[in-house]
């Protein structure tokens, strides 16, 4: 009898130990995302700081000339920072109105087959690989710009802005639609009952109560635009000029991508510093995104 009891007790202890080990394994798996974020942050900081030190932070961030392969190399990334900011703002200016109105249409007016069709169109736009956007931009948009504005080369800031605007459209629409659909129907019904027309209701009642979600959609678009590399690389021309609509420009992302394969020494370190600057921007945008998501109580996609 006692022996049997002892056996079960031992078994219990063994079982508990197994459970604890498994718990530990799952805890490690759970913490893996945290580990990845730390890994990325540490690697970027550690490899990005040295070049900033050698070049000088002010020289690096505010220098207007980038000539990494010249005999007397210059590492100023102000052109890249400004190009990224201008390019992203341009894409937002173009993409947000279209995305916003399309989202209101999808969420509130479209019904049945048309709604399904529009939503699948948005889903498909989101699924197109960025190199395909780049290729179409390169073959269609760039020649158009060249002909339309009579400039020697169509690739540049304007082409990048248009490509980026198209690329951020699906994320803006998706998140805005979710936010608009989450507006309690009572609000709209009350407005309609007071005699407002449907359109007035959508823009005076639904949109304001979904504003945090829509703001999150815009911020998400900003993040997508500033981080896009391949499509932009194919249409921006990639010369390190100060940004101008028809001139060949280089973004933060493309600055990293275009020189990485043949860089070495300080030039390579400087590229890591550019990535660190980009990472800093992304972190700011993420914080803003989280703020709006929490306030709007909408989930990302």
């Amino acid at each position: 009898m006692t022996r049997k009891k002892q056996n079960t007790m031992q078994e219990n202890i063994k079982r508990k130990r197994v459970e604890r080990i498994i718990h530990g394994i799952f805890l490690m798996l759970g913490l893996i995302t945290v580990g990845c974020v730390l890994l990325i942050t540490i690697y970027l900081v550690v490899s990005g700081i040295p070049a900033m030190r050698t070049i000088g932070l002010k020289e690096f961030l505010l220098g207007r000339k980038w000539a990494s392969t010249a005999a007397e190399p210059k590492y100023g990334i102000l052109p890249f920072i400004l190009t990224s900011i201008y390019g992203t703002s341009g894409a937002i200016l173009l993409g947000v109105p279209v995305g916003f109105f399309a989202a209101v249409y999808i969420a509130k007016i479209a019904k049945g087959k048309i709604k399904w069709l529009l939503q699948s169109a948005v889903g498909m736009l989101a699924g197109v690989p960025s190199v395909v956007y780049g290729l179409v931009g390169m073959m269609v948009l760039v020649p158009w710009i060249r002909k339309l504005f009579k400039v020697p080369d169509g690739s540049g800031l304007l082409a990048s802005i248009i490509v980026l605007a198209v690329m951020i459209l699906p994320s803006i629409i998706k998140v805005s639609v979710t936010a608009l659909e989450a507006v309690p129907p009572e609000y709209e019904e009350a407005s309609l009952a007071l005699g407002a027309t449907p359109i007035e209701t959508y823009f005076r009642v639904s949109v304001p109560s979904a504003r945090s979600g829509i703001a999150a959609a815009v911020v998400l678009g900003v993040g997508r635009a500033i981080g896009e590399a391949m499509a932009v690389m194919m249409v921006a021309g990639n010369a390190p000029n100060m940004p101008s609509l028809f001139e060949s420009v280089r973004f933060l992302t493309t600055a990293v991508a275009s020189e990485m394969s043949y860089s070495s020494g300080l030039q390579r370190q400087a590229l890591f510093s550019i990535a660190l600057v980009l990472y800093f921007f992304i972190m700011l945008i993420n914080a803003a995104l989280n703020f709006f998501l929490k306030r709007g109580n909408v989930k990302k996609l």
Binding site: I40, G223, G227, A229, T253, V256, F272, A275, I282
Partner: peptide, 20 residues
């Protein structure tokens, strides 16, 4: 913390993933 980390990961652009 874990969910925040996952959110952060999904916001990082792919070029940075490539670099790291």
């Amino acid at each position: 913390v874990i969910e925040y980390a996952a959110e952060t990961l999904s916001g990082i652009p792919s070029i940075i993933y490539g670099l790291v």
